[in-house]
Simulated assay, not measured.
Amino acid sequence: MFPEFRDLISKLKTDDAHFARLFERHNELDQQIKNMEARIEAASPVEIENLKKEKLKLKDELYLILKAATV
């Protein structure tokens, strides 16, 4: 996610607790969705869709923080 911000992401993960929490939650959701789609975890299509929406919202929020940090 956001390879162009790799160094900044590393810095923010250590310097910004809010960013670190959002980033970790995004990764948790990503893994959970993969497990559900692979049928490792049981889930309905609606549950998967809701998690994907939550993940996308977090990604948007992370991007805004990254953009603000580059100014």
Rank of each mutant, 00 (worst) to 15 (best):
F23W: 13
R25Q: 06
E41H: 14
Q31G: 03
K34G: 00
L22W: 06
L64K: 13
K13M: 14
A17V: 11
A43N: 05
D16V: 12
F19S: 02
K59V: 03
R21K: 15
Q32V: 01
L22E: 04
A38Y: 10
A43V: 04
N50H: 14
K13E: 12
E24V: 07
K53C: 07
L62T: 04
H26S: 10
K13Q: 14
K53T: 10
S44I: 04
L12F: 03
Q32G: 00
N27C: 07
E24T: 11
E54H: 10
N27T: 06
R21S: 11
K67P: 01
D30T: 08
D15A: 15
E49G: 07
E61M: 08
E54M: 14
A68V: 08
A69E: 11
E41N: 14
A17R: 15
E24Q: 12
L56N: 03
E54V: 09
E37L: 14
L12T: 01
K53M: 13
D30P: 01
A68Y: 10
K57I: 00
K34F: 02
E49D: 13
L64D: 05
A69I: 11
F19D: 01
M36W: 09
I40Q: 14
A42D: 01
D15W: 09
L56C: 02
K57Y: 00
D16N: 15
E41Y: 15
L58G: 03
L12M: 09
A17I: 11
K67S: 06
L58D: 02
I48T: 01
N27V: 05
L12E: 01
A17Q: 13
L29T: 08
N27A: 10
F23E: 06
L58C: 12
E49F: 11
L29N: 12
N50E: 12
I65F: 11
E24Y: 04
Q31N: 05
A43E: 02
K57F: 02
D15F: 09
A20C: 08
D16H: 15
E61I: 04
V46S: 09
E41V: 13
E61C: 03
K59Y: 05
I65V: 15
K57P: 00
K59E: 08
L56M: 06
